[in-house]
Design a protein around this nucleic acid. Structure first.
Lengths: 347, 347
DNA sequence: TCAATAAGCTAATCCGTATTAGCTAAGGTG
DNA sequence: CACCTTAGCTAATACGGATTAGCTTATTGA
């Protein structure tokens, strides 16, 4: 046999029609009545022939093959499987398995002009029932096209492009960051500095927004809070941060808040800079996130695994409900980490 | 528009039939003649409507959607993107791009009973035109099923399961390993020891075969060549290898050949064990492979990037030729690395 | 001037499965 | 005995594009 058996082969073997085979194998016997003897005969024929449904035909006919895609814009294969992204991927895999969905991974185009080829590259996603998108880059044209065609998709991370029509699961960095600042304020700190990276991703600006809002409502002098540090080479960054900290201590600063980025370079630089300072006795420290291997740092934990799980749920919801209502957008709360680097401000 | 435009929409817009649209867009005008004016009209309508072909329909109709799958049996997402596998993946991506194929990545089932679910998991691959398989595990039943159904597939690495019917691109470890031993023999070494891992993968047994063959044809006492070292925890392995080397030196051994595995732990242990021995003055060293960061070691380089490229070529050949001849199997030659750790045997 | 070309399209069918609308024969009702 | 159920199945069609087999109109050649 040069081709895989199909329903028609089973039908011939069992002496029934292809329709009957489809009904029995898919179990969609709504209102239909089929004799138990026929059912068994068909099932046995399917077993004997080694029938396995063709996922392509299934998807064409019913718009459903129980596969969901994961699209990463990174060129080459996911080198991004580091500590930051892995929990999200693990959450995706876990929930997909729980919901009976198979995963397919798409990666961005390789070395060639990635931008120009986005449309072609994203076309692939349609072999799945829906797709999760991953990464800060939003190629508006193809995503718009997918949305317009009614293709189910969910972004990981908050997105405000395309007039807010992109469904996503994000993290409430604003609230989490504000909570961190509030803790410092409650501990009596008035001279606080915020160290953030030079990055315009929403995850960065949201954190800043939370810091600024909390500071403003506590009556702190907002304009002196934000300090941008270029996320440059580690060496240069290290000395830059060290100088900053030194100056701040001269200015009577009692607490420093630092953004945690996916590379973790900023918080690492800060940790290095305060190496010979007693924390929190002399200086309080808080991180907007949680650097790996530093459970002692006060800050918050990003629910990464949950991010992956929820994204899959949202996507499968879209696929199965086919409701054309508002885009589903969801922000997850972070888990506060008390840590031991926030102390009472010195009088 | 709640759905993506299809050829029928273009046909309506341009006042032609769906057939004409298909002919023009696919460029398959073999023997067909179509007026240039019609061609332009259709192309413009397609452009205006933002038509993008449906990969599912394309594949169902023509068995071709220009996507090839890569299946890794590793659970979870490919953590295996380390120095060993990356060049292969890079080669795959490179050649796929060159041949105009899109890549889709399938990963084995997660924590759940991987073995039992193989069939279901592998079923997915059929949404692509063909699939590359990766990893030492060959689940015979589903692979047999795919082969029987005429599905194009290529394994990376030599396989002899299923009566040799599995197409593959492998590495000629036998020849490369024999060449290494021959170099030692030519340098006058008679007391050679071979250190190999406790692994029954073909890449291991092939190397051993090369070593044994070369040794036998040089008239060396074969039975004393092979020493199996358990690829256990690094600590235990280290001390075990150190003892071995010490004993061998007492026995008058002048050269040691070590297998290079994907983890590199064996060669690392050996390098550590000879740390205070002058190489090659006191002892010659050869590696059946090339540990990263050790260009001085005599041995051979596995053409990993080429492995990926050739696998893609073989797969695309299968897809396009549809010849049902013998399975395409191919072994690539390794590149000898002269290095500086093989010296003349002391008299 | 009538058939033979050829140019330019289209109708019909296929790929493998899902789904809707019936169709048939047995049994029950009035 | 005509009529209606109902159980048990099937014919037909859709999904979106590829492909084969024609089917019209000019245009030629004899």
């Amino acid at each position: 046999m040069a081709r895989a058996p199909r329903q028609a082969d089973i039908a011939a073997a069992a002496g029934v029609s292809q329709t009957t085979v489809s009904l029995i194998l898919s179990g969609n016997t709504d209102g239909m009545r089929l004799a138990e003897s026929t059912r068994l005969r068909v099932l046995k024929a399917a077993e004997t022939l080694g029938y396995v449904p063709d996922p392509v035909a299934t998807r064409l006919a019913s718009s459903r093959n129980h596969m969901i895609g994961v699209y990463t814009f990174a060129s080459a294969f996911p080198t991004a499987v580091d500590g930051f992204y892995y929990p999200i991927l693990a959450g995706i895999e876990e929930e997909a398995a729980a919901l009976g969905q198979d995963l397919i991974l798409f990666t961005g185009t390789g070395g060639l002009g990635a931008r120009a080829d986005d449309k072609t590259a994203i076309r692939r996603t349609r072999i799945a029932d829906g797709c999760l998108f991953f990464g800060r880059h939003v190629p508006e044209e193809p995503i718009d096209w997918l949305l317009g065609g009614g293709f189910p998709l969910v972004y990981i991370g908050r997105r405000d492009e395309l007039a807010g029509r992109i469904p996503y699961v994000g993290v409430d960095y604003v609230a989490a960051s504000a909570a961190v600042v509030n803790r410092l304020v409650e501990a009596g700190h008035r001279e606080i500095r915020y160290l953030r990276s030079l990055d315009d991703a929403l995850s960065s600006t949201d954190r800043e927004r939370g810091v600024l809002t909390a500071a403003a409502s506590a009556g702190l002098p907002v304009r002196r809070i934000v300090v941008r540090a270029a996320d440059a080479e580690v060496g240069a960054l290290g000395s830059e941060v060290r100088e900053l900290v030194e100056r701040w201590r001269g200015e009577g600063v009692t607490a420093v808040v630092v953004e945690e980025t996916d590379t973790g370079s900023l918080s690492a630089a800060l940790l290095d800079a305060v190496h010979d300072i007693r924390v929190p006795a002399e200086l309080s420290l808080a991180v907007l996130g949680q650097p790996a291997g530093h459970p002692e740092l006060s800050g918050f934990e990003v629910p990464r695994r949950e991010l992956g799980r929820q994204a899959v749920r949202l996507l499968v919801d879209q696929i199965t409900s086919s409701s054309t209502g508002d885009p589903e957008q969801m922000l997850l709360d972070c888990i506060p980490i008390t840590g031991s680097t926030i102390g009472q401000a010195p009088c």
